[in-house]
Design a protein around this nucleic acid. Sequence first.
DNA 1: ATATTATGAATGATGATTCATTTTTTTTGT
DNA 2: ACAAAAAAAATGAATCATCATTCATAATAT
Lengths: 196, 196
Amino acid sequence: MRISDKHQKITQAAIKVFARKGFFNARISDIAKEAKVADGTIYLYFNNKYDILISMFEDEIGKIILRVRLLIDQEEDPRKMMEIFALNHLQLIEGKRDLAEVLQMELRQSNKFMKEYRNKKFIEYIDIISTIVRKGQKMGLFRQELLPGIIKCAYFGALDEMSRLWILSQKPPYSIKEAARQVSDMFLHGMMTRKT
Amino acid sequence: MRISDKHQKITQAAIKVFARKGFFNARISDIAKEAKVADGTIYLYFNNKYDILISMFEDEIGKIILRVRLLIDQEEDPRKMMEIFALNHLQLIEGKRDLAEVLQMELRQSNKFMKEYRNKKFIEYIDIISTIVRKGQKMGLFRQELLPGIIKCAYFGALDEMSRLWILSQKPPYSIKEAARQVSDMFLHGMMTRKT
DNA sequence: ATATTATGAATGATGATTCATTTTTTTTGT
DNA sequence: ACAAAAAAAATGAATCATCATTCATAATAT
């Protein structure tokens, strides 16, 4: 068995366990059991419990970034790009629910994680949005007075809150596609019936 | 010293300590010290550590709801109401930073809190938004095809992510007012230069 | 006096981490 | 190809620090 196999197995087990019990309530022995290894084995691959969380995050969000980038790069229209980002973010819940749950609930929470460990990867992810906004502004599609830094924050926040709704309620009250369309549509066109 | 004094003192101390260390890393003795009471005293007013968190949430969000309602009820125009909600939500960081931080980081996190304990108060808070949306639709100001349930989620999420940005960075990169205006403006008018 | 409120040291459960031992894999010599 | 030796990987029981919670006692109020 190659090194990476055990590492991978433990990471996947940790995602499951963290999703089910939360980081602080998850026991190392839970993860070990889920991964079908001994407790001690985990410490051959990770420095400590917290390291499992960090390392998992790095790996997984890396993959997510690659995937969205790929999809967005195939598109010309910034308006479409916005929708693609939205769809992609929300689809995570369908495809990798446990992961979505951990990213959503466990990582965000920890001041430690977000404050001390200034997260490059996370910033990289949401900066995809501000890049799209700037592109749209350059093309004259988006209003010039918008601050890309605020938009990225608001857009990501909106999507993320939708995720949370889904994670908390068992059944999605709306279809993923419909939700992605509504959110991107609202950001693009606004809520009002006409311009004032 | 009236009962409520100790209760209040402990709650306030807990807010400070939870904000600084996070719920799981906060020790009861930290809270006791901060509140200048004995460890045991805390158990005369709360059932357990978790109960402090819940109880704090109930009390504080209750106050917040009252305040926003008051402000919003004085307003006729749903567009203005949206902005008021935004401003109010963001201003929490200025006025009660520790509380904002706990609501932001600690409460959202815990699956336990949000899943098991179906939070009436929280729902009540964000439902203020959907109520405004419906009002705006009834008045013909907001587009009929919008789903109030999605808007409330997106709007709250956007604001909350702004809060997070502030909490994580020491200095607000934008003024609160400017941010509130930008977010509400974007939701109302959209990002695009013209209707298509 | 009695009842109420507060104290903080002691208890006991928990669970992350360690490490002496075992198992498995790789290397070496014939 | 095979066995012995060495190295690497894995095990899981034991360790040990950490707190939440309790409760016998003390202080304060009625």
